[in-house]
Amino acid sequence: MGKVDENKKKKKETLFNSAYELFITKGINSTAISDIVEKAGVAKGTFYLYFKDKYDIRNKLIAHKTHELFHAAKLALDQAPDPVTGLDEQLIFVMNHIIDTLVLNIPLLNFISKNLVMGALRSVLLTGERTDNDFYETFLEMVRQDSYEYQDVDVMLFTIVELAGSAGYNSILYQEPLPIGQYKPFLYRSVRLIIDSHRVKY
């Protein structure tokens, strides 16, 4: 990466970090673009090089933050002391890691709300950037390496992540239907059933 590209990346990251801090402290509605650029220490024109408006940076931030969650969970999976095998166990490991991270970071949970699926499936569409650490590609590789064949894998991943995101959100914040520690076994049983329903039966 050249110096110009490196500087662009740094400015974008600074805008991301500044916007995120303002969004979780002041709220999106109370944050103006002028607040973001002032905190980032860049000109207003620089903001518009990367983002259309504050809702564009919010959407890309949600995708960025959820992508980071999935990437950290995949690293933990790769570094697990005992290898985790099988698509169902691997996906549950990833979801469990993400849920445990969000339990410890309620501002992040509130910010991404129920949009975990952005990190799993739509981060490329929202950010316009494909990375080597894209979870969707990781997921497809997990599917390829599994001993079963699967159908409608996009639908399977979408359903699992939407379920875990929405149910986990309510369980962590409101203890509904149960506190997250008690709810996990029910959630993961549902995840296993979803995975099983997408297996090709011969």
Rank of each mutant, 00 (worst) to 15 (best):
K54G: 04
P179T: 00
L140E: 15
Q182L: 03
D132C: 02
Q175H: 15
M142G: 01
A63Q: 08
Y48Q: 11
L193E: 08
P185K: 00
K65F: 10
N59G: 09
F23R: 02
N29M: 11
E137C: 11
K44W: 06
E162Q: 08
K54D: 06
T31H: 13
I180D: 00
I180T: 02
E13I: 12
A120T: 06
K8D: 10
V4T: 13
L49D: 14
F70N: 00
D154C: 05
L126Y: 15
G181V: 03
K11V: 08
T101L: 09
H71S: 12
A164N: 11
G86Q: 11
A167S: 09
I28E: 15
A19R: 09
E137G: 09
S166G: 15
D78Y: 07
M156E: 04
D154A: 09
F16Q: 13
A76F: 02
L61N: 06
R58V: 06
F51R: 12
L77N: 00
I195V: 04
K74I: 07
E137A: 12
I112D: 03
Q145I: 06
I98K: 01
K12C: 01
N115F: 06
L102I: 02
N17P: 09
S113H: 12
L121W: 09
V124Q: 10
F158H: 13
Y20R: 14
R192F: 02
I180P: 01
K54V: 04
K74H: 11
A43W: 07
N110E: 14
A120D: 03
F186N: 03
R130A: 09
M156L: 11
T131M: 03
P185G: 01
P177M: 01
E68P: 04
V161W: 02
D53P: 06
P83L: 10
K3G: 05
